[in-house]
Simulated scan of single mutants.
Amino acid sequence: MSSIPSALTRRRLLTGAAALSVLPACAARIPSSAAPAAEREIGGVPMSQIVDGYGLIEDAGYRLPPVPPKYLTGLNRRAYVPYGGYESAGTIEADLHAKLLYWIEPGGMAWRFPVGVGRQGLSMSYDTTIKRKEKWPSWTPTQNMIRREPEIYGEYAGGVPGGLANPLGARALYLYQGNRDTYYRIHGTNDLASIGNSGSAGCIRMFNHDAIFLFPKVPLGTRVVIRDYADSVAIEGEAVANRGRELPPTYVPPEELYAAAEASGPPQFGEATSIESFGY
Protein backbone atom coordinates (compact mmCIF):
# COMPACT_ATOMS: atom_id res chain seq x y z
CA MET A 1 0.00 0.00 0.00
CA SER A 2 2.79 2.38 0.76
CA SER A 3 4.10 2.07 -2.79
CA ILE A 4 0.91 3.45 -4.35
CA PRO A 5 1.29 7.10 -3.21
CA SER A 6 4.89 6.93 -4.28
CA ALA A 7 3.93 5.78 -7.75
CA LEU A 8 1.20 8.38 -8.03
CA THR A 9 3.61 11.01 -6.94
CA ARG A 10 6.14 9.95 -9.53
CA ARG A 11 3.43 9.92 -12.19
CA ARG A 12 2.35 13.43 -11.31
CA LEU A 13 5.92 14.68 -11.35
CA LEU A 14 6.59 13.08 -14.70
CA THR A 15 3.36 14.48 -16.12
CA GLY A 16 4.25 17.93 -14.84
CA ALA A 17 7.76 17.74 -16.25
CA ALA A 18 6.42 16.72 -19.64
CA ALA A 19 4.07 19.68 -19.65
CA LEU A 20 6.90 22.03 -18.77
CA SER A 21 9.10 20.60 -21.48
CA VAL A 22 6.67 21.66 -24.21
CA LEU A 23 6.08 25.22 -22.99
CA PRO A 24 9.03 26.79 -24.81
CA ALA A 25 7.89 25.30 -28.11
CA CYS A 26 4.35 26.57 -27.56
CA ALA A 27 5.58 30.00 -26.51
CA ALA A 28 7.75 30.22 -29.61
CA ARG A 29 4.71 29.95 -31.87
CA ILE A 30 3.74 33.62 -31.65
CA PRO A 31 1.30 34.57 -34.38
CA SER A 32 2.92 36.72 -37.04
CA SER A 33 0.12 39.26 -36.64
CA ALA A 34 0.99 40.02 -33.01
CA ALA A 35 1.44 43.76 -32.40
CA PRO A 36 5.08 44.85 -31.90
CA ALA A 37 6.11 46.46 -28.66
CA ALA A 38 5.29 50.17 -28.52
CA GLU A 39 8.23 52.42 -29.39
CA ARG A 40 9.58 54.47 -26.52
CA GLU A 41 8.73 58.16 -26.67
CA ILE A 42 10.49 61.18 -25.21
CA GLY A 43 8.31 64.22 -24.68
CA GLY A 44 5.69 62.67 -26.94
CA VAL A 45 8.14 62.13 -29.83
CA PRO A 46 8.99 58.53 -30.82
CA MET A 47 12.70 57.83 -30.48
CA SER A 48 13.07 57.02 -34.19
CA GLN A 49 11.57 60.38 -35.17
CA ILE A 50 13.81 62.65 -33.10
CA VAL A 51 15.65 65.00 -35.46
CA ASP A 52 19.40 65.30 -34.98
CA GLY A 53 20.14 68.48 -33.05
CA TYR A 54 16.62 68.75 -31.65
CA GLY A 55 16.49 65.99 -29.06
CA LEU A 56 16.03 66.06 -25.31
CA ILE A 57 18.39 68.54 -23.63
CA GLU A 58 19.42 68.94 -20.00
CA ASP A 59 20.35 72.54 -19.33
CA ALA A 60 20.82 74.34 -16.01
CA GLY A 61 18.44 71.99 -14.24
CA TYR A 62 15.74 72.15 -16.91
CA ARG A 63 14.65 69.49 -19.35
CA LEU A 64 13.82 70.66 -22.86
CA PRO A 65 11.78 68.03 -24.71
CA PRO A 66 12.56 67.17 -28.33
CA VAL A 67 11.10 69.40 -31.02
CA PRO A 68 8.41 67.38 -32.85
CA PRO A 69 9.49 66.73 -36.45
CA LYS A 70 6.37 68.41 -37.87
CA TYR A 71 7.92 71.76 -36.92
CA LEU A 72 11.26 70.96 -38.57
CA THR A 73 10.31 70.59 -42.22
CA GLY A 74 11.89 72.46 -45.14
CA LEU A 75 13.80 75.56 -44.05
CA ASN A 76 12.60 75.17 -40.49
CA ARG A 77 15.73 73.57 -39.11
CA ARG A 78 19.30 74.63 -38.41
CA ALA A 79 21.74 74.20 -41.29
CA TYR A 80 25.36 75.04 -42.11
CA VAL A 81 25.19 76.63 -45.56
CA PRO A 82 27.15 78.75 -48.03
CA TYR A 83 26.40 82.37 -47.19
CA GLY A 84 24.89 84.34 -50.06
CA GLY A 85 24.58 87.74 -48.42
CA TYR A 86 26.78 90.80 -48.21
CA GLU A 87 27.84 90.98 -44.55
CA SER A 88 31.18 90.05 -42.97
CA ALA A 89 32.05 87.13 -40.70
CA GLY A 90 31.16 87.62 -37.07
CA THR A 91 27.86 89.32 -37.91
CA ILE A 92 24.28 88.22 -37.36
CA GLU A 93 22.03 88.98 -40.31
CA ALA A 94 18.29 88.68 -39.73
CA ASP A 95 16.01 88.27 -42.73
CA LEU A 96 12.64 89.05 -41.17
CA HIS A 97 10.86 88.56 -44.50
CA ALA A 98 12.16 85.04 -45.11
CA LYS A 99 12.05 84.26 -41.35
CA LEU A 100 15.72 83.28 -41.35
CA LEU A 101 18.69 84.32 -39.25
CA TYR A 102 22.36 83.87 -40.21
CA TRP A 103 25.42 83.67 -37.99
CA ILE A 104 28.16 84.38 -40.54
CA GLU A 105 31.44 82.50 -40.20
CA PRO A 106 34.76 82.82 -42.06
CA GLY A 107 35.22 81.08 -45.39
CA GLY A 108 31.89 82.07 -46.91
CA MET A 109 29.81 79.81 -44.65
CA ALA A 110 27.06 80.54 -42.15
CA TRP A 111 24.75 78.86 -39.69
CA ARG A 112 21.19 79.44 -40.84
CA PHE A 113 18.35 79.30 -38.32
CA PRO A 114 14.60 79.54 -38.82
CA VAL A 115 12.94 82.25 -36.77
CA GLY A 116 9.52 83.59 -35.95
CA VAL A 117 8.94 87.34 -36.06
CA GLY A 118 6.38 89.34 -34.14
CA ARG A 119 4.84 92.64 -35.19
CA GLN A 120 7.45 94.43 -33.14
CA GLY A 121 10.24 92.57 -34.88
CA LEU A 122 8.84 93.35 -38.32
CA SER A 123 9.24 97.05 -37.60
CA MET A 124 13.00 96.67 -37.15
CA SER A 125 14.94 98.35 -39.93
CA TYR A 126 18.20 99.44 -38.32
CA ASP A 127 21.40 97.77 -37.16
CA THR A 128 21.89 97.00 -33.49
CA THR A 129 24.57 95.57 -31.21
CA ILE A 130 24.32 92.76 -28.69
CA LYS A 131 25.27 94.25 -25.33
CA ARG A 132 23.68 91.73 -23.00
CA LYS A 133 23.25 87.95 -22.99
CA GLU A 134 21.20 85.89 -20.53
CA LYS A 135 20.59 82.20 -19.89
CA TRP A 136 17.02 81.38 -18.85
CA PRO A 137 16.14 85.09 -18.61
CA SER A 138 13.20 86.53 -16.73
CA TRP A 139 10.67 88.54 -18.72
CA THR A 140 8.43 91.53 -18.10
CA PRO A 141 6.17 92.90 -20.85
CA THR A 142 6.81 96.50 -21.82
CA GLN A 143 4.26 99.19 -21.05
CA ASN A 144 3.54 99.45 -24.78
CA MET A 145 2.71 95.74 -24.92
CA ILE A 146 0.42 96.03 -21.90
CA ARG A 147 -1.26 99.14 -23.32
CA ARG A 148 -1.70 97.60 -26.78
CA GLU A 149 -3.00 94.17 -25.67
CA PRO A 150 -3.94 94.36 -21.99
CA GLU A 151 -6.03 91.19 -22.23
CA ILE A 152 -2.86 89.21 -23.03
CA TYR A 153 -0.09 91.00 -21.16
CA GLY A 154 -1.81 92.75 -18.26
CA GLU A 155 -1.66 89.73 -15.96
CA TYR A 156 2.10 89.43 -16.51
CA ALA A 157 2.91 93.02 -15.57
CA GLY A 158 4.77 91.77 -12.52
CA GLY A 159 7.10 89.66 -14.66
CA VAL A 160 7.63 85.96 -15.31
CA PRO A 161 10.66 84.21 -13.77
CA GLY A 162 13.17 82.39 -15.93
CA GLY A 163 12.32 78.79 -16.75
CA LEU A 164 10.51 76.54 -19.18
CA ALA A 165 7.37 78.67 -18.97
CA ASN A 166 9.12 81.94 -19.77
CA PRO A 167 8.29 83.57 -23.15
CA LEU A 168 11.99 84.38 -23.73
CA GLY A 169 12.86 80.70 -23.52
CA ALA A 170 16.28 79.30 -22.75
CA ARG A 171 18.44 82.17 -24.02
CA ALA A 172 18.13 85.85 -24.90
CA LEU A 173 20.38 88.27 -26.78
CA TYR A 174 19.55 91.91 -26.02
CA LEU A 175 19.83 94.43 -28.86
CA TYR A 176 21.07 97.98 -28.28
CA GLN A 177 21.67 101.13 -30.30
CA GLY A 178 24.63 102.76 -28.61
CA ASN A 179 23.77 102.54 -24.92
CA ARG A 180 20.02 102.52 -25.50
CA ASP A 181 18.11 99.29 -25.04
CA THR A 182 15.84 98.90 -28.07
CA TYR A 183 13.70 96.30 -26.24
CA TYR A 184 14.20 94.02 -29.22
CA ARG A 185 15.51 90.55 -28.44
CA ILE A 186 16.68 87.44 -30.22
CA HIS A 187 15.38 84.73 -27.92
CA GLY A 188 14.10 81.20 -27.50
CA THR A 189 10.42 80.33 -27.44
CA ASN A 190 8.02 77.58 -26.47
CA ASP A 191 5.61 78.64 -29.22
CA LEU A 192 6.94 76.15 -31.75
CA ALA A 193 4.30 76.93 -34.37
CA SER A 194 5.50 80.54 -34.55
CA ILE A 195 8.86 79.56 -36.09
CA GLY A 196 8.79 80.38 -39.79
CA ASN A 197 5.76 82.62 -39.29
CA SER A 198 4.71 86.05 -38.04
CA GLY A 199 3.19 86.28 -34.58
CA SER A 200 1.16 88.93 -32.85
CA ALA A 201 3.97 90.00 -30.53
CA GLY A 202 7.53 89.23 -29.58
CA CYS A 203 10.76 90.07 -31.32
CA ILE A 204 12.90 87.46 -33.12
CA ARG A 205 12.10 83.99 -31.82
CA MET A 206 14.10 80.80 -32.22
CA PHE A 207 13.61 77.20 -31.22
CA ASN A 208 15.13 76.90 -27.75
CA HIS A 209 17.50 74.28 -29.16
CA ASP A 210 18.77 76.78 -31.73
CA ALA A 211 19.03 79.60 -29.19
CA ILE A 212 21.20 77.35 -26.98
CA PHE A 213 23.33 76.41 -29.99
CA LEU A 214 23.86 80.03 -31.11
CA PHE A 215 24.41 81.59 -27.68
CA PRO A 216 28.08 80.62 -27.04
CA LYS A 217 29.11 81.54 -30.58
CA VAL A 218 28.03 85.17 -30.31
CA PRO A 219 30.25 87.53 -28.24
CA LEU A 220 29.08 90.78 -26.72
CA GLY A 221 29.50 93.59 -29.23
CA THR A 222 28.24 91.48 -32.15
CA ARG A 223 26.51 93.55 -34.82
CA VAL A 224 23.00 92.54 -35.85
CA VAL A 225 21.99 93.60 -39.37
CA ILE A 226 18.42 93.59 -40.64
CA ARG A 227 18.13 92.53 -44.29
CA ASP A 228 15.69 94.61 -46.34
CA TYR A 229 13.02 93.13 -48.57
CA ALA A 230 14.82 93.82 -51.86
CA ASP A 231 17.91 91.96 -50.65
CA SER A 232 15.75 89.16 -49.28
CA VAL A 233 14.19 88.63 -52.71
CA ALA A 234 17.58 88.88 -54.45
CA ILE A 235 19.28 86.39 -52.09
CA GLU A 236 16.51 83.98 -51.09
CA GLY A 237 14.09 84.26 -54.00
CA GLU A 238 10.61 85.76 -53.96
CA ALA A 239 8.86 82.67 -52.59
CA VAL A 240 11.17 82.34 -49.58
CA ALA A 241 11.19 86.10 -49.01
CA ASN A 242 7.42 85.87 -48.49
CA ARG A 243 7.23 82.63 -46.55
CA GLY A 244 5.16 82.16 -43.44
CA ARG A 245 1.79 83.43 -42.35
CA GLU A 246 0.33 85.75 -39.77
CA LEU A 247 -0.70 83.83 -36.65
CA PRO A 248 -3.38 84.88 -34.17
CA PRO A 249 -2.39 85.84 -30.62
CA THR A 250 -1.41 82.97 -28.35
CA TYR A 251 -2.75 83.32 -24.83
CA VAL A 252 -1.69 81.09 -21.95
CA PRO A 253 -3.27 81.79 -18.53
CA PRO A 254 -0.70 82.99 -15.99
CA GLU A 255 -1.47 80.13 -13.62
CA GLU A 256 -0.46 77.65 -16.31
CA LEU A 257 2.82 79.46 -16.94
CA TYR A 258 3.71 79.62 -13.28
CA ALA A 259 2.65 76.01 -12.67
CA ALA A 260 4.86 74.88 -15.54
CA ALA A 261 7.76 76.88 -14.14
CA GLU A 262 7.37 75.25 -10.73
CA ALA A 263 7.09 71.79 -12.26
CA SER A 264 10.28 72.12 -14.31
CA GLY A 265 12.62 70.61 -11.76
CA PRO A 266 16.10 69.14 -12.18
CA PRO A 267 16.67 66.31 -14.68
CA GLN A 268 16.24 62.74 -13.54
CA PHE A 269 19.34 60.60 -13.80
CA GLY A 270 19.39 58.56 -16.99
CA GLU A 271 16.31 60.24 -18.43
CA ALA A 272 17.83 62.91 -20.64
CA THR A 273 20.25 62.80 -23.50
CA SER A 274 23.24 65.09 -23.40
CA ILE A 275 23.69 68.01 -25.76
CA GLU A 276 26.92 66.57 -27.17
CA SER A 277 25.19 63.49 -28.55
CA PHE A 278 23.12 65.70 -30.84
CA GLY A 279 26.10 67.42 -32.42
CA TYR A 280 26.42 70.53 -30.31
Rank of each mutant, 00 (worst) to 15 (best):
R112D: 05
E276V: 12
Y80R: 12
G163I: 08
A89G: 09
E276S: 15
A19C: 15
V218Q: 04
E39R: 10
I275T: 09
L247S: 09
Y126N: 12
E271S: 14
R245I: 14
A35H: 13
E87C: 09
G108N: 13
V115R: 01
L247G: 03
I226E: 07
R180S: 14
Y126K: 15
L192E: 00
N242G: 06
L56M: 15
S194K: 01
V51T: 11
S33Y: 10
K70L: 14
A7L: 14
P249D: 09
R63N: 09
G202R: 00
L164V: 15
I204A: 01
A239F: 06
A110M: 08
R223D: 10
L173N: 04
L175V: 02
G188P: 08
L247V: 05
I152Y: 03
H97Q: 13
E149W: 02
S48K: 05
I146D: 01
M145S: 07
A261V: 07
D228E: 11
P106Q: 06
T250E: 09
G116I: 02
A170N: 02
N166A: 05
G53Q: 03
D52S: 04
L23I: 15
I104V: 15
A34C: 10
A260L: 13
A98R: 00
R112I: 08
R10Y: 10
L8P: 08
Y174S: 01
F269A: 14
T9K: 11
Q120S: 05
P267N: 08
I146T: 09
K70Y: 12
G16K: 10
L96D: 01
I195V: 13
G90H: 03
A79N: 12
G44E: 04
P5N: 11
A172Y: 05
A157V: 02
G265A: 13
T142E: 09
I235L: 09
I92Q: 00
F278P: 06
P65Y: 06
W139R: 07
E262N: 10
A7T: 08
A98Y: 02
E155W: 00
N166R: 04
T91P: 08
T140F: 01
T222Y: 02
